[in-house]
Amino acid sequence: MAASTELGRFLRVRRDRLTPEDVGLDPYGSRRRVPGLRREELAQLAGVSVAYYTRLEQGQSANASDAVLDAIGRALRLDEEERAHLRGLARPPRKGARRSRPERVRPATLAVLRSMDLNPALILGRAADILAWNRPAHALLAPHLPLDAPDRPSDRPNMARLVFLEPHTRDLYADWPAKARDTVAYLRKAAGQWPDDPALTELVGELAVKNEEFAALWARHPVRDCHSVEVTFWHPLVGEMKLAEEVFRLQEQPDQRLAVFAAEPDSASESALRLLCAL
């Protein structure tokens, strides 16, 4: 995923979402050959020359200042996460920082994870690989897979593959479309941070080929980090569960995320979760 190419695609998709009326401009010309803002209109809003903006969109300007990128972000009505993504695409990291070894979970983190008896918890890597999970998370998310699958780098489950390629996972999430959108938005953010990560590039290519819904969502260029949400599960063994999902970046391993699920105390969901953990 060349960052220059991704930058141009991101800018074009976001231009296409806006009309002159959306941003307070008078449309000129009776026929518009583009669905959204023209380059010259966006350049006018951002206060840069059309030639400069065109070079930026074509990946030919690697020295755009924060002020220029922020102006373009405001013109495109990007939120803070999307602006950070824009800055990352405009200034990709130096090549050569590819991961040479499989990601590992710190022993202390793994011990904490496995000490949780009721709360499903898992560690996710930069490309959404499941690096570790406890027994409740395994029972909740993928009981059809071996419990020790995350321990073998070559066999590790991947959350994005589960969401888009596993019928079990599609049935598990009551609002699967929301989970699918969030998954793609995270992968887009990750791709901007690590454009030369081979595992991430391979994952996106595989999902785009195998799943049309993924390909359509990917083409929209959503950008969003993982946030805390409430998730409703339809588990085949214990039925409906409404769980709060909290996501934390690990201080010692900032590329990794800890996701923990919890039910409201004394609720039907807590009873169902206790039953699942006891099975």
Rank of each mutant, 00 (worst) to 15 (best):
E206M: 06
G29R: 08
A43F: 03
E81N: 01
A51W: 10
D70V: 09
I72D: 06
G192C: 11
A51N: 14
E212Y: 08
A62G: 09
D22R: 04
N63G: 10
R39C: 11
L78P: 02
E264P: 07
L203P: 02
F233H: 03
D255K: 12
S271P: 04
D66Q: 14
R156T: 07
V48R: 03
R274E: 13
S61V: 06
L7V: 11
D182P: 05
R39Q: 07
A278V: 04
P93G: 00
L42Q: 03
V68K: 09
A127Y: 10
P153R: 05
H235F: 06
W133D: 07
N134Y: 06
R39I: 10
Y28I: 15
R249M: 12
D171G: 02
S269T: 06
W234R: 14
Q44S: 12
V23M: 10
H144D: 08
N119C: 15
R161H: 08
Q256S: 12
S115M: 14
L69Y: 01
R17G: 15
E213D: 14
A268G: 09
R39G: 04
A219S: 11
N158Q: 07
D79Y: 01
P150W: 05
Q60S: 08
R77K: 11
A75Q: 03
L37P: 08
L131W: 00
H221V: 08
R126G: 06
V13D: 10
A185P: 07
F261A: 04
G8T: 02
G8V: 05
C226W: 14
S4H: 09
A97Y: 09
L275W: 00
H235K: 11
G88I: 00
L118V: 15
A84N: 11
A259S: 15
D196E: 12
R274L: 11
P265E: 04
E103V: 13
D26R: 11
R104P: 06
V23K: 09
E240W: 02
A216V: 14
T5W: 07
A84I: 04
A268C: 00
R74W: 01
L7F: 08
P93H: 03
G96Y: 08
L131A: 00
P150D: 07
R87S: 08
K189T: 10
Y173L: 09
F233D: 02
V50D: 15
T201H: 08
E82F: 02
V229S: 06
A67Y: 10
F214N: 04
R274S: 04
R39N: 03
S271I: 05
L145R: 07
Q256F: 12
A111K: 14
G125W: 03
S30W: 05
A121V: 12
T109D: 13
E40L: 00
N134C: 05
F261L: 14
D26I: 14
A46H: 04
V112W: 13
D66S: 11
L7S: 09
D182E: 15
A90G: 00
R161N: 04
N119M: 11
P93T: 04
M159H: 12
L42H: 02
E40C: 01
E103F: 06
G8P: 02
H168T: 07
E270V: 01
R161K: 12
L162T: 03
P150A: 12
E57V: 14
E264F: 13
A75F: 00
Q58G: 11
V260I: 15
R15I: 10
P35V: 01
A215Q: 13
P120A: 12
R161F: 07
G125N: 05
P102R: 06
L76S: 04
H168L: 01
